[in-house]
């Protein structure tokens, strides 16, 4: 299995693309760090009792800081390394969840729209158009506002992550739906689909078992690129204060907090999470671009 993977076409192209390899290394480091945050981080940034104000605003080690805090601390005395690892964990989790929801929703609707066509297709696509006309932030604000109005206050805090995820997913599904629909239009006239239809197979079976595996290429590309968008969107929303509160900081929240210190000389509080976010998003995007090239033989 592994040997086959190494000999496969994508692997061959991968090992000849320095950019893709570098991006993969960065992405693995960042994602690995986020996953292993509980073991890597020396403090829990969500537990206010573990840090002391005495350690506040320490610069990174190479600027004469405390060796306990590699990248310094913020004003609360929170270890930046721990904060970033936990923040990235949260950002990635929200991004992944949103991406998965958007994929399921978008691909499902796109498949059905492309397969059945007609009125159903028209309805789905007009909804998609409307969705595209609303910026993601507006969607998020809407859902946020509605959930604030509908849910009891004690639940709101717990559901912040869910609301954020849903808002991001809703602004990303259109991409999937459009791509899936366009690919289905191409595939459904191919003979293997016609053969399945002639045999009288159930439409659901034709869509899921026959068409879906054949349109996965472009969808995989969108999944990667949209994962990066989802992470960025989460960061934006949190930065604007619609997202996660300061006591459970994601990367965006960390950047928002860091903003206050930009002019007072404590640059690391802003720059460290920002660079981390940029590295994560850029590496995922480079990988997405690489996948696009792999799945589009015309570009080779």
């Amino acid at each position: 299995m592994f040997a086959r993977l190494v000999r496969s076409e994508p692997a061959y192209l991968f090992f000849r693309s320095p950019a893709a390899m570098l991006a993969a290394v960065v992405a693995i480091l960042v994602i690995g760090g986020a996953i292993c945050a509980p073991w890597l981080a020396r403090t829990d940034p969500y537990d206010l009792s573990t840090f002391s104000l005495m350690d506040g605003l320490l610069p990174p080690v190479w600027q004469g800081g405390d060796p306990r805090f590699l990248l310094g601390t913020d004003d609360q005395g929170r270890d930046m390394v721990s904060a970033i690892l936990y923040g990235a964990r949260l950002s990635l989790m929200i991004g992944l969840m949103a991406m998965v929801i958007a994929t399921v929703l978008g691909v499902g609707l796109g498949l059905a729209a492309g397969y059945f066509g007609g009125v159903f297709d028209a309805i789905v696509m007009r909804v998609a158009d409307v969705q595209l006309a609303l910026p993601a932030i507006l969607t998020a604000l809407l859902i946020d506002g509605v959930s604030r109005g509908l849910l009891p206050p004690e639940m709101q805090q717990d559901l912040r992550v869910a609301v954020l995820t849903l808002a991001i997913a809703l602004s990303l599904w259109v991409n999937f739906a459009r791509t899936a629909r366009a690919s289905v239009f191409v595939e459904r006239n191919k003979d293997y689909v016609q053969a399945a239809m002639i045999m009288g197979q159930h439409p659901l079976r034709v869509m899921v078992r026959h068409i879906l595996p054949n349109i996965m290429g472009p969808l995989l590309v969108i999944m990667t690129v949209d994962l990066a968008s989802a992470i960025l969107l989460e960061a934006t929303l949190s930065f604007l204060g619609i997202g996660l509160p300061a006591d459970s900081p994601s990367l965006g929240t960390l950047i928002r907090i860091g903003m206050q210190f930009l002019l007072s000389g404590e640059w690391w509080i802003l720059w460290v999470p920002t660079l981390f976010l940029v590295a994560l998003v850029v590496s995922i995007n480079v990988l997405g671009d690489f996948l696009r090239d792999v799945f589009n033989p015309r570009l080779r």
Binding site: K190, D191, Y192, Q194, A195, A196, I198, M199
Partner: peptide
């Protein structure tokens, strides 16, 4: 049953 022209696209 049907046999199609293009054997490259008639099998999934």
């Amino acid at each position: 049953q049907m046999v199609f022209q293009d054997p490259y696209s008639s099998l999934n």
